[in-house]
Every structure is written in C-alpha cells, then in structure tokens.
Design a protein around this nucleic acid. Structure first.
Length: 583
RNA sequence: GCGGGUGUGGUCUAGUGGUAGGACCUGAGCCUUCCAAGCUCAUGGCCCGGGUUCAAAUCCCGGCACCCGCACCA
C-alpha cells in the first residue's frame, strides 16, 4: 500500500523534514528527529502560533523544566491517574486493564484499590480472560511517565513532564506577581513533553517525546467571556457535539460560533473564542477546512479535571480523524490541587470596587476576669470559647451559667467572662482559585497534517509532479535561485540576485541538473517561487519568477526582485496580478 | 505487550547456500536558451547480533523497525 503517508515519509527522509531518531543504532518507535526542512517548517508554525498568542492575545511565554519533582505529579494526578493496573492472560497473553475487569465481573469499585487487592478480587471471583477464558496473571502497574532520580544515590524522584501545562500551574505565584495581580491573564509555553506510550506506531502522530504548544488562560470563575469574541463570532465551524456523536446518524454541523454559543452547544464564550482562534490558526497553516472539525469530548473520555473539552481534529488519509489541539476548561482543578499539596496560596485576589463593610459578631473573652479565676487554664479556655459560633454563644449567655469541657476538665462560666461583640469588618476583596482555559496544541501532528494537507500531485507535460503546496507563511524555503545554465556570466548574475534578497528570506541556490529538474526539486519541498537568471538577464537585467502552483512565469527587473518577492511571500500581491516589467 | 506479515544503496526492485545486479535519485564532468532530456564516470546496500555450515542476503534463534489486528491512549 502506498498512500500519502508513505510518500511524505519518503520525501521527508530524502529531503529532510523528519526521520527516525538514532537510526544508525536502530531507532525506537515513538522517536523522530526533524531535519533541516522540518526544523524550518516547525519554526514557521511556532512563529505563526506566537503571532496569535503572544502578539495578538498578549500572553506571556515561559520556559519551565522538563523534569519535575514527584510532588508535582502527585498533586496533578498524573502519578495515580496516569498509571494503569494491568494484567495479562497466561493462556493467550492478551493484556487488560485489571481494574476494569474486576468492575465488569463484580460490584466492586476497583479504581482506587491496590494491585494486590485487585489480584485477590480476580482470584476470589474467578475472573478469567474475556478473550479466551484463560487464567489471569499478576496485576502490575504501567505508568506512562518516564521516571528518573534527581541527584546521586537515593535522591528525590523526578519525572519527565507528560505535558507542559504543569510548569505554568506550579509557577502561578510568580506569574501572578509579574502580572501585578491582574486577571485574566494568559501564559504560554512551547516545549517537549514525554509519555512512555505502550506501543506508538503512527510515525510522528504518536510520539514518546513530542512538542506541545500550550496556553493557560487564568480567568475569574464567573467571567468566561472574551473581549474579542466579536472578531470570531461569525466564523463558521464544524462542530461535532456529544449529542451528535451519540446519535446513530449524528453528523457534525457547520454553525456560526455565535449561534453555537447562544444555543448552549458551546458552554462559554471563551471556549468558543479559542475554538475560533484555533480554526483561524490551522487554516493559516494550510490545513484543509473540509478536513477539519471540532469534536466535543464524551463524558467518559474527558479528563478528570475538565469541565468541557473540544478537540480540533483533522482528517488524515491514513490515520483518520486525529487530534491536533484540545481546548478545555480545566476549571480550578490544577491550582486547587497544587495549592493544597504545596501548602501555598495559589488563589487570586479580586478587589471590590468599593470595600465591603461586613458586620460580624465576634466572641471576646474577658481575660482580666478569666486570668485571676482560672490561672494557667485561662488561655486554653479563651481559645475554646473563640471556637464556639457567636450565635451559639449568645444562647449560652442567655442562661445564667454554662459549662465547657477542656481535656476532660469542666469549667463553669457566665457572662462575666465572655461577651459577644459586634464588629464591623472591612473587606476590600476576596480570594478565589482562578479557572483555567487551556488551548493545547500538538506541534508534531500539526506539522505532519500541514504537510499532508498541502501535498498534491498533478500532471505537467504528461509527467506526474509531486508538489507540496505549502502556504507561504509555513514554507521552509521562500525562494530558489537558478542560473539557467552553468555559464560564468549567469553564475555571477545569480550571486548578485541572491545578494539583493533580504536576509529574512530563506533562499536556496541550485545550479546542477536541467532547469526542469531543479524546478521539480523545489516543487517537492514546497518552495513557492523560483528565480531564474537567463541570457536575457545579461542584456536587460531582468529575471524570471516562476510560481510553484501554476508554473507560470513573469519577468522582473533585478532592481525590483527583492520588493516583488517580499510582496509575493507576504501575500500583498497575487502572482497572476503581476505583469512582466517593461523591458 | 500479544498474534500475523515484511525487512537488499536515499527510493523501487532482481537474486533460494557459492563473486550482490539493475533502474531512478544523488555527486563530478561533458552538453544544454525554461519544466525530471542525453552521454561518461563516481558514491552508496543485504536491519542488527548470535548460531548452523568449508561457505549465509538466503537456513535457525534473539533483538529492532515498519505494516495489519488486539490491547492501551489520564
């Protein structure tokens, strides 16, 4: 079978988009390196993404470590949640989730049980292999995180992060300070994440070491709107909701974001906004709109922390619908967990417009009476009194006398020793855990799909042509320069043309092989324009620009070439609107 | 991790125990006035490691990678 995936893999290895890592020693699945062209492509995709999130949304970018202490992942839930209890059939060797089997066969909630206990339950209830009925082996853990130890000996345990997100959560106190306490604010991170997948087998689609671009938007719980929503409200997106997925004939529907929001299909304006932004971003890269949809996570697949989640999915020729990005509402899950586990205050402070004055009843022990009477016990008594609710205290004081018990000792008290005072407390704001909206992008998959959706074959002079129709903003090479033949005069002119081009333009030079072959070499890696220096150049200082998609050519003066190429690559002018310079 | 299949230069492939061959690509040279032209030359290979054998690309074992199916994918 030769499909687009095979063709892209072949071009990738030969021309340098990506290839298997440490291949000379026999690569391991789930690891890929990016070659020179792939690296440029990724750089361009990152740059477009930063354009959206850093320039337009004004988010901050950080770099956090890829190895983090075990505590981080205990709090985040990855240590337990990322670990599956597995068992294998002794007869047919198939693997199963041990806890799921126990739940299927018995009434037990096996989710949180130890492996030992699950194994006992399997034995007691004679749970057997669902495939062949064979005996099941011992229960073992499989955690998808890569473990390491920090420092020599029995140092602290560390893990390679399974997502870049945690770095932004644990840095929250610093981030809040650098944002001077204001909400909402957003933070992004581009970097590697690691998951020790059981068996990744889909090229760069499922990797053990992969690239993420994640944004975390910290918002007030009740304020999940976005000031720029109007910019995307008329954007039509293909939404595939839970209901549609559960219906037999359910199909995604194309709908304006504003309508999807009004009808409650999308739960909050801010989610709708980032769905719109994600669509625009992906289309900018050249991803095919007809092969793009947003699918809502089903209840059972949604992560423990998420309230609502929509995946941007792209259709791949070989792999079907694959997730490129996930836009989820993580609520206050992460900050709350890290706050509790670290004993640090990860809440935000929301200042009221006007400080609120709250009348409060406060219990006030009279120490000048308590002291002389109860001596060394008086401090403890006072503390116990303060623990009583003011309302209850008022009732107690209505009686002539009341008793409290401390460490088994009883003390008789009355209104001489304690009173309930009314105090006016000034509150200038309140503390709360911000909610997190997380648009998270898988860079490797986006890169692959960008190539796949841009890949095309057409026929030129009865000959098949492989061409990657990259959008100009992502194309690794902007322009190629060729002398028509290897003639000294033409070579010299070519150098002058290259010199006249901006340094920002990615340029290649090629003088070997026939001109047609050189055009094909560039078509195959998606270079949008080729400049050719021919004999006429010597006479009138004009060169030809050849467009990749149409293979049409125009003639331009060398003095105009830099301006023209810049206009073309920045989409300020269309190729077919240009006419050859008068000669 | 399990079962099945596959593994020969960058790519496609011939080779069934006895000197590893071709085509394309790539590079050098010649030729060449715009879309993979031609000629000459060159680089480059039996997935890796063991074993059997006088001799292994070929047979056996193990590993790795890829493909299909199962399982897994917070």
């Amino acid at each position: 079978m030769t499909d687009i995936y095979d063709k892209i893999t072949e071009i990738s290895k030969r021309r340098g988009f990506f290839w298997p890592s440490f291949d000379i020693y026999g690569s391991a699945s789930g690891f890929y390196d990016y070659g020179p062209l792939g690296t440029k492509l990724i750089k361009n995709i990152k740059s477009k993404w930063r354009d959206y999130y850093i320039n337009k949304e004004s988010f901050d970018e950080i770099i956090s470590t890829t190895i983090m202490s075990e505590d981080v992942f205990r709090a985040s839930g990855h240590l337990d949640g990322f670990e599956d209890a597995m068992t294998e059939c002794n007869n047919c060797n198939k693997s199963f989730r041990a806890d799921h089997l126990v739940e299927d066969f018995t009434e037990e909630q096996a989710d949180s049980l130890s492996n030992q206990k699950i194994y006992e339950l399997i034995k007691e209830n004679e749970v057997s292999c669902p495939a062949c009925g064979g005996e099941l082996g011992e229960v073992y853990n499989f955690n998808l995180m890569f473990k390491t130890s920090i420092g020599p000996g029995t140092g602290r345990n560390g893990y390679l992060r399974p997502e870049t997100a945690q770095g932004m959560f644990v840095d929250f106190p610093y981030l809040q300070d650098t944002n001077r306490g204001k909400l909402p604010f957003g933070v992004v991170q581009i970097g590697r994440a690691y998951r020790n997948e059981i068996s990744p087998r889909q090229g760069v689609i499922r990797l053990r070491e992969f690239l993420q671009m994640e944004a975390e938007v910290f918002v007030k719980p009740g304020e999940k709107n976005h000031p720029s929503f109007s910019k995307v409200k008329d954007e039509k997106v293909k939404l595939y909701s839970i209901d549609q997925q559960e219906e037999k004939e359910g199909k995604p529907q194309k709908i304006k974001l504003e309508e999807a929001l009004k009808s409650g299909l999308i739960g909050s304006e801010i989610l709708a906004y980032y769905i719109g932004l994600t669509k625009k971003f992906l289309l900018d890269l050249g991803i095919d709109q007809s092969k793009l949809r947003f699918r809502q996570h089903l209840d059972e697949e949604r992560a423990h922390y998420a309230e609502d989640c929509w995946d941007a999915e792209a259709k791949s020729d070989r792999f079907g619908w694959i997730e490129l990005a996930g836009i989820s509402d993580r609520t206050n899950y992460d900050l709350k967990k890290h706050g509790k586990n670290s004993n640090q205050d990860l809440r935000a402070f929301d200042k009221y417009k006007e400080p609120k004055k709250i009348e409060k009843k406060v219990i006030s022990p009279n120490m000048d009476k308590l002291g002389p009477k109860f001596k060394d016990k008086s401090k403890k008594i006072a503390e116990s009194l303060k623990d009583i609710r003011p309302e209850k205290m008022e009732k107690l004081l209505d009686k002539e006398k009341f008793e409290i018990e401390i460490d088994g000792e009883k003390f008789k008290l009355d209104d001489r020793y304690v009173e309930v005072e009314k105090k006016i407390e000034k509150r200038s704001g309140e503390r709360f855990y911000p909610h997190v909206i997380e648009p998270s992008y898988g860079l490797d998959r986006i890169t692959y799909i960008t190539i796949e959706h841009s890949y095309d074959e057409d026929v030129l002079d009865e000959e098949k042509r492989k061409v990657i129709r990259f959008n100009k903003i992502v194309s690794p090479i902007d322009v190629a320069v060729f002398p028509l033949i290897e003639d000294k005069k033409l070579l010299n002119k070519s150098q002058k043309v290259i010199d006249s081009l901006d340094n920002e333009l990615n340029t290649v030079y090629d003088e070997s092989g026939s001109i047609g072959r050189r055009y094909r070499r560039q078509d195959e890696i998606g270079t949008p324009y080729c400049i050719t220096i021919d004999h006429q150049t010597i006479e009138d200082n004009t060169v030809t620009i050849r467009e990749r998609d149409s293979t049409d050519q125009i003639r331009v003066k060398i003095s105009d070439i830099n301006t023209t190429i810049n206009k073309l690559t920045k989409n300020k002018v269309k190729f077919n609107e240009l006419t050859s310079s008068p000669t």
